[in-house]
């Protein structure tokens, strides 16, 4: 249990998707104008991440990884399909996003209208594919670890986008040099927030 909590905390603060790996920056920069919309997008990202990463973990564990198809028959033990993982992961993500969109539309219309256009956009959010690729690279051992990792990464991303949106709402009233307005200052704010987040890096969990 402690190990799961460690992975969870680590993926929120130390290996934060935005500040340590710059994943999902495109939607992070485009949607962070107000706190309300960024909260919506953040929740959608958490939601999709905790579904797709475990599914891709199963795929990696039982079909794609080297020797993972032994469960079918012993003759498959030399088969290594890991070169197909990009295309499989992205196909899984795109179809799950589509599926989630349909389910949410049917059973939770209120949530659907508040998530709005963000759901389909998530298919091409690098944080989602990044989650699956990091899962593969770091070789997590159990489903619980993968789940803790994906939940933590999602919450870390949510935290980052809500924090920067709140700062951007305030900074509208400040005197910024004209060429820095909008995009430029957002980059610099993110950099400074990143430096702040680096203070977590010394922590060994």
């Amino acid at each position: 249990m402690q190990e799961l909590i460690n992975i969870f905390i680590k993926s929120i603060f130390i290996d934060n998707m935005v500040f340590a790996f710059f994943l999902g920056m495109c939607s992070y920069l485009a949607v962070s104008k107000t706190v309300k919309t960024s909260l919506g997008l953040g929740i959608a990202v958490v939601f999709v991440l905790i579904i797709t990463t475990p599914v891709n973990y199963l795929l990696n564990e039982y079909i794609l990884g080297p020797g993972s198809m032994v469960w079918i028959s012993d003759s498959f033990k030399d088969v290594d399909l890991s070169f197909l993982s990009f295309i499989m992961f992205i196909a899984v993500i795109a179809s799950i996003v589509q599926l989630v969109e349909m389910i949410v539309e049917k059973y939770a219309p209120a949530l659907y209208s508040s998530l709005g256009i963000f759901l389909p956009l998530i298919a091409v959010n690098c944080a989602i594919l990044g989650g699956s690729l990091f899962m593969q690279e770091r070789e997590y051992e159990s489903m619980g670890q993968v789940f803790a990792f994906s939940l933590g990464s999602g919450i870390g991303w949510l935290l980052a986008i809500v924090a920067v949106a709140a700062i951007r709402e305030r900074i509208k009233y400040s005197q910024i040099p004209a060429p820095l307005k909008g995009l430029g200052i957002t980059f610099i704010i993110t950099g400074i927030m990143g430096i702040a987040f680096m203070s977590f890096m010394g922590i060994k969990l």
Partner: peptide
């Protein structure tokens, strides 16, 4: 360190 990449882009945009 990673954050300086962001600040560098900010300066290029400026």
């Amino acid at each position: 360190l990673p954050p300086m990449a962001l600040i560098t882009v900010g300066l290029i945009i400026w």
